[in-house]
C-alpha cells in the first residue's frame, strides 16, 4: 500500500528526515510519534507530495514524487489547521468533490454518519463550523472519496476534550481496509486508534513496532487513580506501596495513583477492598509522551519547530 525507501529531506543544513524506509500495509493503523521538530509533519507532507524530498514514496503503486495526482487520489488529508475557505459548507463540499471527481452526496452521507446534518450545517459559512465539525467534514470528504489512506497531522490538537473524543470515535469506525497514518504528540490519540507506532527522532526512525512492544520496551505504564475517602487515603497508599513498589504509588488531593500494567489493576483494587477501604471512583491517565519517548530517544538536545 505505502512503500517508502530512503526518504530524506534537508532544510537549512539539517536533516529533517534521514533515510527513512517504511512499509505500511492496507488497513494498518499507524501513529507517528515524536517531539516537536522530530519530522512528523514533514513525513506527512512528503507522503502527500507537498514538499521536495529524496528517495521514493509509492502509494498504491504510484510514485508520489513523480505522479502526484494519481497518488493523491488514494490519499485523504486531515490537517491540524483547518483550511480557510470563504463560502458555505455546501460550496466547500461541492468544490472539493469536483476536484476529487466524486459525487458530493457521498460526502454528505459520511457527514450524516459522523453526526452532522448536511441540510443544517451545509448552509453555514465554513468559518462558522467548530474545530470538531471541521475535522469531521474533512474526514467525510476523505471517506466520501473512498481513499485507501488517511493522513492525519495532529488532527485533535485544536479540539476540546469532547470534540477530540468524538473525532477519535469517528476514526475508529473507519472501515478496516482504510490505512490510517496519524502524526501526533498525544498518547491518548495513539491509544485510541493505532496498533503500530513509529517514533521519529531528529528525522530518523527510532522505533517501529506495536503499541505493546513500545510500552514494554520503555516500561511506561498508565497511572490508575483510585479515589477513596480522604481519611483513608494514606492508608490506601501504604497498602498499595507494600503490595507493589513504593515508587509506583503516588497521591494527590483527590486520589491515590499507582503505575502498574493493566493486568495488575484488579489486584490493586482487590487489595483495597480486602482492607475494607471503599472505592469512590477510578480512572486511568495515559503515560506522558516524554515518559514514553525518553527511553527511546534519550535526553539529547532537541530542536524545536
Amino acid at each position: 500500500m505505502i512503500k517508502v525507501k530512503g526518504l530524506s529531506k534537508r532544510f537549512r543544513g539539517h536533516d529533517v528526515l534521514a533515510n527513512i524506509d517504511l512499509d505500511i500495509a492496507r488497513g494498518e493503523r499507524v501513529a507517528v510519534l515524536g517531539l516537536n521538530g522530530a519530522g512528523k509533519t514533514t513525513l506527512i507532507r512528503c507522503l502527500l507530495g507537498l514538499t521536495d524530498c529524496d528517495g521514493s514514496i509509492e502509494v498504491e503503486g504510484h510514485d508520489v514524487l513523480i505522479d502526484e495526482r494519481a497518488a493523491r487520489k488514494h490519499l485523504g488529508y486531515v490537517p491540524q489547521k483547518p483550511p480557510h475557505f470563504d463560502g458555505l459548507t455546501n460550496e466547500f463540499i461541492e468544490m472539493f468533490s469536483r476536484l476529487r471527481g466524486i459525487d458530493p452526496r457521498a460526502v454528505e452521507q459520511h457527514l450524516e454518519r459522523l453526526g452532522l446534518s448536511p441540510e443544517e450545517h451545509g448552509e453555514k459559512a465554513l468559518k462558522e463550523l467548530s474545530g470538531g465539525m471541521m475535522q469531521k467534514l474533512l474526514l467525510a470528504l476523505a471517506l466520501g472519496s473512498e481513499v485507501g489512506v488517511l493522513l492525519l497531522d495532529e488532527p485533535t490538537a485544536n479540539l476540546d476534550p469532547r470534540a477530540r473524543k468524538e473525532f477519535l470515535r469517528a476514526l475508529k469506525e473507519v472501515d478496516d481496509n482504510t490505512t490510517i497514518i496519524a502524526a501526533t504528540h498525544r498518547f491518548t490519540d495513539v491509544q485510541a486508534l493505532a496498533e503500530r507506532i513509529i517514533v521519529l527522532d531528529r528525522g530518523k526512525v527510532a522505533f517501529d513496532g506495536t503499541k505493546s512492544d513500545l510500552l514494554g520496551r520503555v516500561g511506561a505504564e498508565a497511572v490508575l487513580w483510585i479515589s477513596v475517602p480522604a481519611n483513608l487515603r494514606s492508608d490506601a497508599a501504604e497498602r498499595l506501596a507494600k503490595r507493589f513498589e513504593r515508587d509506583a504509588v503516588t497521591m494527590n488531593g483527590q486520589a491515590v495513583g499507582i503505575r502498574i500494567d493493566s493486568a495488575q489493576r484488579s489486584d490493586a483494587i482487590g487489595e483495597l477492598r480486602d482492607a475494607g477501604i471503599p472505592i469512590e471512583n477510578m480512572w486511568t491517565d495515559a503515560p506522558a509522551l516524554h515518559e514514553i519517548l525518553e527511553p527511546i530517544i534519550g535526553h539529547g538536545e532537541r530542536r524545536e519547530g
Partner: peptide, 18 residues
C-alpha cells in the same frame, strides 16, 4: 494569504498538480 491560512496546502493535497 491562502498559504498563510493553510488553504493552499489542503488544496494541493487533493488530486491536482502544482
Amino acid at each position: 494569504e491562502e498559504r498563510d491560512r493553510g488553504g493552499l496546502e489542503f488544496l494541493l493535497a487533493q488530486p491536482v498538480t502544482f
